[in-house]
């Protein structure tokens, strides 16, 4: 039941954002009916278990995460890729990275962040041990024989996996 209510509320919020600027009474009522239909159809597979962590502090942290560390790492990665596109100096390879996360949401968040941040691309996710196999554009010489990488080896200024651990675990 709580999953149904949460799905309905988030669907209604999405409807409100999409129709911002043209709110009339009829539209708001139609949106409510649509949100209830959507929640009845999809609440079953949006939440696998009932342990939902809907802490508002986590939401603020998630917003902060997207705005500051993620964006700075993304800008750095883009400048790095631009330099490598023009000079052509690459040393690619696939390495193993253990973000030490357990929840599905955390793995999803770190895999998506890693694809957009520092010269990396998540290729494969091991379902049992939660290891990520990451393609790096440039591996520093001497580092390629390392068994499993930690967060501070991949990221330079901010350890994104620690941030994701704070948000999603």
């Amino acid at each position: 039941m709580i999953a149904f209510i949460l799905t309905a509320i988030s669907a209604y919020l999405a409807y409100l954002i999409f129709t911002a600027g043209s709110w009339t009474g009829q539209e708001l009522i139609a949106g409510g009916i649509l949100a209830i239909i959507v929640a009845a159809l999809t609440s079953g597979f949006h939440f696998r278990n009932n342990k939902i962590k809907c802490n508002p502090i986590r939401m603020i942290l998630a917003l902060l995460y997207v705005l500051i560390p993620f964006f700075i790492e993304m800008a750095k990665a883009n400048i790095d890729v631009a330099i490598r596109v023009f000079t052509g100096k690459i040393r690619p390879g696939i390495i193993k990275y253990n973000p030490q996360l357990k929840s599905d949401f955390g793995i999803m968040l770190i895999a998506n962040s890693i694809t957009l941040t520092p010269g990396t691309l998540a290729v494969h996710v091991d379902e049992e041990s939660n290891d990520l196999y990451v393609h790096l554009l440039n591996i520093a010489p001497g580092k390629e024989q390392k068994g499993s990488w930690a967060g501070k080896d991949i990221f330079s200024w901010f350890d994104l996996s620690a941030w994701v651990r704070r948000i999603a675990e």
Partner: peptide
């Protein structure tokens, strides 16, 4: 992000090795 992850995984499953790779843990 999700689409590029899917493409990379599909390419690896087809057997494409990364060119000029110094290490391939996968």
């Amino acid at each position: 992000a999700t689409g590029s992850h899917a493409i990379a995984q599909a390419a690896y499953n087809r057997g494409q090795k990364p060119v000029r790779a110094v290490v391939d843990k996968l």
